[in-house]
């Protein structure tokens, strides 16, 4: 498993992660007692990556939604006390095939925009650490030297920047109206905040 873990993570990054906001939106309609949507999403990725061949997955977004649905159903089966709020709520999970095809290919342009958006919201030191390390490929020592912090701090910054990435990406960068209060909270003084908007 460890051997091709990074390869699998990269596959997930290209094919599934850009759709996480949509996946979360679909799951929002489902309220099952004792079930946390965030747990379902994490488990969904585990299941997808544990499958025999990622290459055989033709419609990753559809597949992710179906997998999530399976997890919810399993949970309902397992629990003795079932309390589903709203009838037929599992239907909200299905994505019509036709629609899925049309949306299937998230334009790479949008992906680039989403990344820019997320980076713009990160506090500077975390963004800098991430870019120096992941984009420029500098060593931990070099990053520490440039930021004038200890190497231990670089570990902390990188950990925090990964966590922020996960949170900000998951929220879906597109909808500024929904996410701006959070952006302020996370981004502090470096967040874009134009007057009159």
């Amino acid at each position: 498993m460890l051997d091709d873990l990074s390869e699998r993570a990269a596959w997930l990054a290209c094919n599934v992660l850009p759709h996480e906001a949509l996946l979360r939106a679909r799951l929002k309609g489902v309220r099952v007692f004792g079930l946390d949507i965030e747990d379902v999403i994490q488990e969904t990725y585990t299941r997808i990556l544990s499958g025999p061949s990622l290459q055989s997955i033709q419609h990753p977004k559809q597949y992710a939604v179906q997998t999530a649905k399976g997890i919810v159903i399993d949970h309902v089966r397992r629990s003795r006390v079932v309390s589903i709020v709203g009838t037929g709520c599992l239907d909200t999970l299905s994505v019509p095939i036709r629609e899925a095809n049309a949306e299937e290919r998230l334009e790479f342009q949008e992906e680039v925009d989403a990344v820019i958006d997320v980076l713009a919201r990160m506090p500077e030191k975390f963004r800098q650490t991430l870019i120096m390390r992941r984009v420029e490929g500098l060593s931990q020592k070099e990053v520490a030297r440039r930021l004038n912090v200890s190497e231990k701090s670089v570990e902390r910054y990188l950990t925090e920047s990964v966590r922020l990435l996960v949170t900000l990406f998951g929220r879906g960068g597109k909808n500024r109206a929904n996410s701006s209060p959070m952006a302020k909270e996370i981004g502090g003084e470096d967040v874009v905040d134009k007057p009159g908007s």
Partner: peptide, 13 residues
Amino acid sequence: GAYARAEGSMVRV
């Protein structure tokens, strides 16, 4: 899953 998402997020950047 959580791990792959974390590493994958860096890949996206």
